[in-house]
Design a protein around this nucleic acid. Structure first.
Lengths: 111, 111
DNA sequence: CTCATCCGTTAGCTATGACTTACGGTAAGT
DNA sequence: ACTTACCGTAAGTCATAGCTAACGGATGAG
């Protein structure tokens, strides 16, 4: 699975916070770290993880480095979730119907 | 965020495997652990995490315990992702347009 | 050229999580 | 009643993730 990295990346709360801030617009690392309860190198490491997961892209801007959401990574995880959603819901419905069949006689019974 | 638990739960590869198996239909713990590279108690612990994240439900069946996907938990994480998707894509488009404005003085490129 | 700013990387510490083994509890079969 | 099957939980071990402090490289201003 390609999106395994994406799920692992979004698991950390600090990384989620960084990602949500970037969703409102591109930001350099320093400004991104300002207001967060962790140091700047920590944010830099988180950004590295997010980048390897395909969730963000970076671009040099003078002495700064601007990070930005990568729609592609977000699209991949969304696609996986959609496929999974259909599969799980179908199995769920099938089980509900089967439960309706066994509703007359209670505990153990065979068809 | 309520779905923080869901993301953390789906981060672990073993838990992802368990979850994907359950997507194809309900299963008891023993049969779920059969074929996985970890022990049965490990699977039981994973199921506990998935349950607390609202991703699965369990139901006693004699001496066994049958686990099943909970569409509600999957729906919540999907809703969050959808909202996030719109927000991020809008910011992304805005940035692309702004990039078009600064194309004259920069390293020129425009379709 | 020199200085200051901004950033990525490394080393090292600590905390968290995933796993196994061992145990107790419940339900079904004989 | 006894045995067997199935499961959850507790204790303990080991690996890994996240963090800080310190360092070095690149860019822009003076």
């Amino acid at each position: 699975m390609t999106n395994a990295l994406a799920f692992a990346a979004l698991a950390d709360p600090t990384r989620r916070e960084v990602f949500e801030r970037l969703a409102r617009g591109p930001l350099p690392v320093g400004e991104l770290a300002r207001g967060l309860p962790v140091s700047r190198p920590a944010v830099s490491q988180h950004l590295k993880v997010l980048k390897e997961a395909g969730l963000v892209t970076d671009r040099p801007d003078g002495t700064r480095r601007v990070y930005q959401i990568d729609p592609q990574g977000l699209g991949q995880i969304r696609a996986w979730l959609d496929r999974f959603w259909d599969e799980a819901l179908e199995a769920f419905k099938a089980e509900v119907e089967r439960d309706d069949d066994t509703q007359d006689t209670e505990t153990g019974n065979k068809p």
